[in-house]
Design a protein around this nucleic acid. Structure first.
Lengths: 215, 215, 215, 215
DNA sequence: TATGAATGAGCATTCATTCAT
DNA sequence: CATGAATGAATGCTCATTCAT
């Protein structure tokens, strides 16, 4: 078995152990390739107990997705201070995002890779979380436009596309930063922030965005 | 069966039929959920013939990935005219990319969703293709910097990260454009080009990148 | 849960509650399909308590069979007045039989359908009850023959067969009367009594048996 | 394995072997207690082949019911000569019925015990067969009444009840004759015919029905 | 070139039953 | 008197893969 067998634990604790094991297994093997046997084993319990508490493989997977989605959005929200300027908020959010995904690779794999590839119901769960992030970014873009004292002339659909592109780039970079050794969460965030805020054209004109000195 | 049964066809033709069926099935059901039965049926042949020609499910999946990866990179390359300025080349590449993925949703699903989620060997195949695109973009960035008559002061790793972010954003937008009705490949390309070249900051200062008029 | 949870009840009462729940569940789902979980739940107790009182699923099923068998034979016996003529006794017994089975469909299902279909030990229990009824009917036939002032010329084995046929017909009609709406216990008893006493031949000669007027 | 392994048989043959094994297993163990493993083993094939040919346990059971029901009704029909008088036809039908059930105890157990106890869909299958027999008997009763030159004064529902009782008695006696050693199909048929045609009352008056001498 | 016949191995799920309190 | 926590052992079903023709 994969864990020390602590017998007779309260239900809530056992459930978390099971979710831990499930996230790890789903993240590494994939939804279909992960077997309930392996998950139960890794959690240090028998299979029937997993079913007693979490009903089915589908329900277990959904529970994993929900837990990890909440953990990620909570982490991003907790990393952003509401009062500061929009670009600053974006920067903080990105840092929190890259930090969390780096620290929870299996959870991130479940959300980013597995949940989207195994049927509507699961994809819908991640989609909801993703929308939260997209909305958050969209608002920041709008606020930033207002702060720049310019016409908020960007049409709505355009803004949606930009937010989508930004979130997509972040998701992609998270995998890149995890794979490439020596890329810290901070570096990943800086790269993306630069790209998003200044654009390639500007950067090459020697006018990059630069992170606040104390970060 | 899914196709008219034409007996005794040359091997090359049969293989393409099988790959067509496989890409469609893998793209829609996922690697594990796709059964060899369904693929053989959809291809209009018996299962043993599939094995005779393509050896195993893994090999078949790999063959799908390779074919679709080649088709995508070929499409991008074919869409870019070598002589033109770097930003123009980038724009053309993005258009070709979004057009191809929109026209081959199953192939794109195989590459973007399935291949990365089912183990190292398959992920490595897509990774190779992705690298081709990243390298292509990286070169464009370097050339653009040179064309801007500036020091290539961007450190190499930084450039790699930018290219990565751009490709990631493109991949993400491909899914978005496919899902949202009414978003054309051209619109998606424009959104991303604007975002990448000018950056959010510039765009809000009223200095967006704008596509060449004749496109 | 299926019943109000009254804590701390005397054992005898709890046992009856469990048997009630078990008869209902076994009767409706069948022996194998009935789960101890469902029975315990319907009885409003925890599973270990069911095991504490009734030992095992087999024992529980046996207890159900015995209780229902006794209830049925008691009902038949109670419905028959000893002093009256044999055909009259048979008529009273049939009425009691059809009335009881109509009022206890789950119990009757346990005896007639479930107990006989799930292995020797259970079938033997019902067989014993059935024998009681067959013996009762056999005696009535013998007495009737004597009352008719005829030689008891019917050989013993023949009489046994007749009783068997009568009981079998009754069992079959019980299901029929329960299924067909509008067939009362009395009607079912009359149909069978007529059939058994007069026979088809006689009935068609216009000489049916007729029930006593006051019934 | 339970049978000699003859490899590579045509599908139709294998299917019959599987049905043979299934009828035997279902008849002896019951629907739920019978395992697909045991059936496959007894048929001398692997489980997947059983599923390939018969789809599911439910479908397999249904196939058994249909085959055995058809065999039984065919046997009864084949045993009855259309031209002869009604009581003679009934007698021939009963003989064929008892002979067939005695020769196919497992098939009879499937129909009489198992199919009726495991859910509506299965019960409906047997019900259909039973109805055929009931209709057959009902017609015989009507014809007999006409042949007796009497008013067909028996109301329709009454006749239905009589036919039901007769078939029920036959079913019950089939089990009895199978269980009691030394009771031949002919004896069982005679007992029932006597009971049904003459009635207990008549028999005790010394006026039994008697089988045609040549039988 | 092509296929009907066949299987070993694995997987999600359920259930009767017991232990510790 | 009563229960929450836990499991060993099946069971129905599917799938990738091969053999004989």
């Amino acid at each position: 078995m994969g864990a020390v067998k602590n017998k007779r634990m309260p239900r809530a604790v056992r459930e978390q152990q099971m979710l831990d094991a499930a996230v790890r297994t789903f993240g590494q093997r994939g939804y279909r390739a992960a077997s309930m046997d392996e998950i139960a084993d890794l959690a240090g319990v028998s299979k029937p107990l997993v079913y007693l508490y979490l009903n089915s493989k589908e329900d277990l997977f959904t529970a994993c997705i929900r837990r990890e989605a909440k953990a990620l959005t909570d982490a991003v929200r907790a990393g952003v201070r509401p009062g500061v300027p929009a670009d600053r908020q974006l920067w903080e959010g990105l840092r929190a995002f890259f930090t969390h995904t780096a620290e929870n690779p299996d959870g991130w794999a479940v959300l980013h890779l597995q949940a989207r590839t195994h049927g509507e119901p699961f994809a819908a769960e991640v989609f909801a979380m993703r929308e939260e992030l997209v909305v958050f970014v969209t608002q920041l873009i709008v606020v930033a436009a207002r702060e720049a004292h310019r016409d908020p002339s960007l049409p709505e659909r355009e803004v949606a596309g930009l937010a989508e592109a930004l979130v997509g780039a972040a998701e992609s970079l998270a995998a890149w930063a995890n794979a490439a050794p020596g890329i810290s969460a901070k570096q990943a965030a800086a790269t993306l922030m630069n790209f998003a805020w200044s654009g390639l054209g500007n950067m090459m004109e020697g006018r990059p965005w630069s992170p606040p000195p104390q970060d």
